[in-house]
Structures are given as structure tokens and as C-alpha cells.
Write a protein that binds this DNA or RNA. Sequence first.
DNA 1: ACCTGAACACCGTTCAAGT
DNA 2: ACCTGAACACCGTTCAAGT
Lengths: 236, 236
Amino acid sequence: MVFVSSPMPPRPGRRSRITELPREPLSRERIVDAAMAIVDAGGLDALSMRSVALALGTGPASLYAHVASKEELLDLLIERVAVGLERPEPDAEHWQEQVKDMVRAIHYGLLAHRDLARASLANIPLGEGALTWSDRLIEILKLGGLPDQVVAYGVDLLPLYAVATAYEYALNAERMSSEEGERYIQEIREYFAALPPDRFPHVVALAGPLTAGGTEGERFEFGLDVLVAGLAAYGR
Amino acid sequence: MVFVSSPMPPRPGRRSRITELPREPLSRERIVDAAMAIVDAGGLDALSMRSVALALGTGPASLYAHVASKEELLDLLIERVAVGLERPEPDAEHWQEQVKDMVRAIHYGLLAHRDLARASLANIPLGEGALTWSDRLIEILKLGGLPDQVVAYGVDLLPLYAVATAYEYALNAERMSSEEGERYIQEIREYFAALPPDRFPHVVALAGPLTAGGTEGERFEFGLDVLVAGLAAYGR
DNA sequence: ACCTGAACACCGTTCAAGT
DNA sequence: ACCTGAACACCGTTCAAGT
């Protein structure tokens, strides 16, 4: 909360307007902080150059001295998430579980910021945080004895999966509160079950597993198993 | 092109304003046609309610009598693509190849319309076209002897892969013309190779395979192999 | 060098009014 | 019932002007 219209009178003693008036100057860091707070509070749709500027008590034009475009700002948000990801100490014995841990880290790291995953699908992450993460993943995949080309594909395929599933999940979460979520799933199940069986026999028959089919986490883990097992099959 | 300010005089003879003035009325169909043409010509960024209205010679407000929102219009575009997808005749002998064919169909079907895949990641497709497609995929996966729960996961996982890879590819394609594409890949490769090897040893070492690594099609096929083989492992 | 106000060229959607 | 003009409440970005 920012008190603009009715500020407290200056404190008695040394602190005068000198420390108050020239408020902290803008910086990339402060802009990213404010942007992340907005995403956390209202999702990616709430993020605009204007909303960031407002939160920082300035106008949108002022941001362009520190950030080239909204797209760059989104990149910086992704990079911020990447920097915070846990990276396991490589251990050939448990390389498959370590790969899974790294994929889980992006997936849940993104989900911690609402639908931020949407901004992550857009571009090859080339920031330092993303690159150190990639470097570690390559190292672990190599420990698994995979050929270079398989490693190269894997380092693309695994984060694609992590991000796409995070995006899919976040979109549904964004659309509905938790109770509405239950009802929505229920509605889809009923919709599937009520379809004309002569035209969609297999969808109708599978209405249960298609929708109930375990929690979201189980779904994610299933795909992760498939991918890691599939990659491992190329190992020595 | 629409001549509004200087219309031609009415042709001599029978054709009078009667057949000319009441131009074809709006309809969902015409709106979707116009929207798809805009996406094909300029990508998803060029699509707005206003650009569609302009193409139809009307104002944006007029569209809302036939389409609830821009989101619904996007759904209709996806459904239009889904209706046109090829569906193989189920054959237990070749179920894995048939699954691949269906995944390729969505992937390339979306890519035929620029970055339309972006609109497809957003929501569970519930249109008739999408459902008949799903029904056929379920049928084929069952022919492969997969347990119901694996089928249910697969019918989610496979289109997710098809769409996410189409989106990724289209974004890069959207950003650059074909020659620029080569140069861009080249630049990334050089960037990777020029990174400090003490901090990113594995990225630097793999700069070649990471970027060159075959055509986009090979990348896509690799992931498809991994997924289908991974699913098949759950079969009887 | 950094910041700002004002403007430009857009958005999706609503609504009262027309036919 | 279908369509429209005008308006509302927004966008990202630019640019001349200020300090």
C-alpha cells in the first residue's frame, strides 16, 4: 500500500525530506520485483507495463530506460525463476531420479507463479540461470551414458514437457477456484459420458479414466516416467 | 480491396442494387473463414475482432451476434483444423505407426496455419472434430493392448506433445524469414560455443548437437519415438 | 543519464439505438 | 433478430521536453 494523498508528516529529528523525496531510483531489479509480485497476485493477464509502472509509482514510459520491451521483462521473470531452481549433485548411480528432480523443479517452480509458464513456452532461455540449469542437466544425462545427440534432444524435450504441463495446469487453475475445479471436472466427465455412444464409443467408455485419472501430479509423473524411460533406452 | 468512397456506378442491365446491397449476411462460418484467412496471412498476432470485422466489411460489435468472445472464435479455429485431420483405419498390426500418424497430423495440421498452435495449448478441445479425433486415438491405443489408465494419459500426452512442439517451431518461424533462420541458429551455436567453459562446460561441449542436431522434423520424430515406445512398454 | 507527459495507434467488449 | 456507432476501459511503445 502506498500513501500518496495523505502522507504522514516528517518524523521529528534528523530524517527530513532529503531521504524521503528522491525515492529509490528505478532499476531492472526493482522492475522485475514489481512485475513478479503482480504476476503472483493476479496472474500473467494482470501484468502490463502500466501495472508495473503504477506499482512503482511512475509512468509506463519510465520503464523503457531499463527494459527494452515487455518481452524482455518476461524473459527476466523466467530467468528469475531459473536462478532459484535446485540443481542436484550429479551421481551416476541415480541419474534417472536426478533428471526427474530437475524436471519437477522447473514444473513446480513455474507453477509457484501462477500461469507464468505461458511466458516460458515462448523462447529458448539463454539467461545465466537457465544455462547453468541446462549445463547440469546435460551433465547428468551424459552420466546416464546417453549418446550426444540423445542428450541434445533430451535437454530440449524435458523442459518442453515441464513447461507445457505447467501451462496446461495453470490455465485450468486460473479459470476456477478450487471448488469450481471439482465441479468443472465433474461437468466434463458427465459431458463425455453423455455423448452419443454410436459416434464417440471410446470416449464414452473411457469417461472415467479420462477425467478422474488420478490427481494432476500423477498425470505429470506418468509422462515424466515415459520420457525418462524412453531416453534411458538409448543408453549403453 | 473494398471501394467505399468511389463505388462504380451500377452495371447496365438486370443486376441492380437489389442483389448487390444486402451483402451475404454474417454467420459463424463466414467469421471463421475470415479469421483463418487472417491467421494464414499474418499469424495469430494479426487476428483481432477488429481485423476480422474489417475483412467482412463491418464493425467489431457485429461479430458478437454470432460469436461469444474472441476466445470462442479461437476455439472455432482449432475445431476447424481438427475436422480436417486424417484418421487412419485402426489396424492392430500397425498401431504404433498409426498413433504416430495421428500425432503428426495435428502437429503439421496446426503448422499449416502459422502459429495457430498457440491458441490450441489453451484449452481442452471439446468440439466434435476434436472428439472424433480423440475417439479414434483411444481406439488405436486400446488395440495396442494398453491399460485404460495408460490410454487415458496417452490421449492427453500425445496431443500435448504435438501442439507444444508445433508452437515452439512456429514461434521461431514467425520471428524470422528462412535465411534469417539459418543465421539465427548459427548465432546461437556461436553463443553457446563462446560461453565461459569453466561455468558452462557441458553446454559448450555440446554446442554442435544442441543446435545443429538434425532438422526440426528429426527432433519432432525423436520425441515421438520416445513417447510411443514409452507408452508401448505398458502394453501386454 | 534518467525520467516524464502526452500522444499514437491499437485492443476486447458493451450498449443504446436503429432497421 | 440482426446489425451498428459510439463509447469504455484498457494496451505497448515513442518522443520531445524536462531535470
